[in-house]
Structures are given as structure tokens and as C-alpha cells.
């Protein structure tokens, strides 16, 4: 079953003539890890907001776990959608509403009127899954960027979503913080079967995704595996994307007489290939 289905979804910001998203159609499998790539202004974040029903498409439909966001314009269905599709935003400083981690994590469950006993279970689960138990009583403002984003994920997880959308959530973090967040997200997808949609402009995050989508000027420019994507250099250039670091290095090695071959995306793959080459020499 598809977790998310865009059918000819078009969105214009009020007052703008040109649509940010133009008749966008694609679907995301349940339980998969997908990345959405594209340069600034390509409509990535708008697509994320459509999934969460923060905005509604002007034309076409966005269906989340069988629920059409257009029909959920108000009322309980809207909260069902927001509950099942949690969203983590870009700026780690602009997502927590309470000063203390625990108080912030309970915000979502409190909003939907959950009984206290259940909230207690949810906090325990959310903090455990994001490895933030030790910050439970800490001040949000004292945490690092990566820790804040993990708390933001915990806040989303407390609502037990089936889908988690990261809207450039790693872009303001240092490499260590980015690693922390991605590890948590991977674990959520693998161990809890949560569908993850990672909107990013870091190509390295795309290498081990199940599926990659590329947006250009509000239209879908590519859908397929990361391997297929990074094999198409012309497309990458046209969409303003780069190769992942390891792939870039592999390309240069190939050009300079070290035949590591095509299709290398990660550091691990490259290391393995190089070791192989050294042994055969």
C-alpha cells in the first residue's frame, strides 16, 4: 500500500501566478525510506506541507494513508492526518514550545486529548526511540542542534505517526548532529516500520534511500533508486544537484586511471572496491 499519493497536485501561494508545485504526481510506499531532492525553490518544502495538510492543493489531490487532505479541510480527519504524518522542521530552535524537554514532548499528545496514563507511555517510547532519555528534565535551550532535532523527533513520535517527514531537518546541524539525527531516523524506519521522507540537499543522505525523487521548478524530474539517479549526470546538472562525496571521488579516480567502476555511492563501497584493486595488483 502507498503511504502517500500525489495526484496532479498543484499549489500556488496566495497572490502568486506561477504555481510552486505544478501537477505533481508520485507515490511513496509504506515503510520505505525516501529522499526528496532539489535546489532551493524547487517546491520540496511545499510538498512536505501538503502531506501534513498544513496547506491544501489548489488542484489535484494528496492522499495520506488513504485519507484525502482536501476532504479533511477541517475537523477530526485533519488531526488524523497530522497525527499519522509527523513533521520535523528545519530550524532546531523554532519547534519546541516548552522550556523543558519532557513538557515539550507531551505537547502533541495533550493537544489530541490523550489520557495521562497513555501520555506517560508515549513519552517513554518517544524518548527511548530517539535516545533522549537523559535530557528528559533538561532545558531545551541548553541542548546542541542535533539534540534539539532529536527532541523534535520525539515530540512528533509521541503522537505515534506512521510517517515522519524531515523538512531539511539536518541542514542547520554540524556533521555530528546530522549523523545523530539520521541514525535515529534510520532506526525508526527499520525497527518501527515508519515511512520516512527525508527532504534534503545533502546528497550523502540520499545514497542509502529506497527511493529518490527529484523536483525541479515544481515538477517531478526524476523518480527511481539513488543508483539510477546518480548515474544520470546530465539530469543532476540540470537540477542543480551534485554527486555524493564518495561518488565524486570514484568518478575522479576513474578519470585518472584507477578503474573503480561505476555505481559507487558510499564511502564503504569505495573502500571495498579500492581494497579489491590493491589485492589484485
Amino acid at each position: 500500500m502507498n503511504a502517500i499519493e500525489f495526484t496532479n497536485a498543484t499549489y500556488r501561494y496566495p497572490g502568486d501566478d506561477a504555481p510552486v508545485l505544478n501537477s505533481l504526481s508520485f507515490s511513496i510506499r509504506q515503510g520505505s525510506f525516501s529522499v526528496v531532492l532539489g535546489r532551493n525553490g524547487s517546491g520540496k518544502s511545499t510538498a512536505a506541507k501538503l502531506i501534513n495538510a498544513l496547506i491544501l492543493p489548489n488542484e489535484g489531490n494528496v492522499v495520506v494513508l488513504g485519507k484525502d487532505t482536501v476532504r479533511a479541510a477541517d475537523g477530526d480527519l485533519l488531526f488524523e492526518i497530522r497525527k499519522s504524518a509527523g513533521m520535523v522542521f528545519q530550524n532546531p530552535d523554532n519547534q519546541q514550545i516548552a522550556s523543558i524537554v519532557e513538557d515539550d514532548v507531551v505537547f502533541g499528545p495533550e493537544n489530541v486529548g490523550m489520557p495521562r496514563e497513555e501520555i506517560a507511555e508515549r513519552i517513554a517510547f518517544a524518548l527511548e526511540a530517539t535516545g533522549t532519555e537523559q535530557f528528559r528534565h533538561a532545558q531545551v535551550s541548553r541542548l546542541s542542534g542535533g539534540q534539539k532535532q532529536r527532541v523534535a523527533i520525539a515530540g512528533v513520535l509521541a503522537l505515534r505517526p506512521e510517517i515522519v517527514i524531515l523538512d531539511e531537518s539536518t541542514s542547520m546541524l554540524d556533521p555530528k548532529g546530522r549523523r545523530e539525527v539520521l541514525d535515529v531516523i534510520r532506526k525508526l524506519q527499520k525497527e518501527h516500520g515508519i515511512t520516512v521522507i527525508d527532504i534534503t540537499h545533502y546528497m550523502d543522505e540520499a545514497t542509502d534511500a529506497d527511493e529518490a525523487f527529484v523536483l525541479r521548478n515544481g515538477e517531478l524530474a526524476f523518480a527511481g533508486t539513488p543508483k539510477e539517479l546518480f548515474a544520470r549526470t546530465d539530469l543532476l546538472r540540470a537540477c542543480g544537484l551534485e554527486l555524493p562525496r564518495a561518488a565524486e571521488l570514484a568518478k575522479k579516480l576513474n578519470e585518472n586511471g584507477v578503474p573503480v567502476g561505476d555505481g559507487i555511492l558510499t564511502t564503504e563501497e569505495l573502500t571495498e572496491k579500492l581494497c579489491e584493486l590493491l589485492q589484485t595488483d
Binding site: Q95, I97, G108, G113, I119, A152, L159
Partner: peptide, 18 residues
């Protein structure tokens, strides 16, 4: 936006954990 995404809808049906 972050509050909306976490189902905030005013005080009507909120519970209080603490």
C-alpha cells in the same frame, strides 16, 4: 507551523499531563 503539525487546536479538548 510546528504547533499546527502537532495537532494544536486551542484549549478545547486538551488534556494536561502534569
Amino acid at each position: 507551523d510546528a504547533m499546527d503539525a502537532r495537532c494544536y487546536a486551542g484549549s478545547s479538548k486538551r488534556t494536561k499531563y502534569k
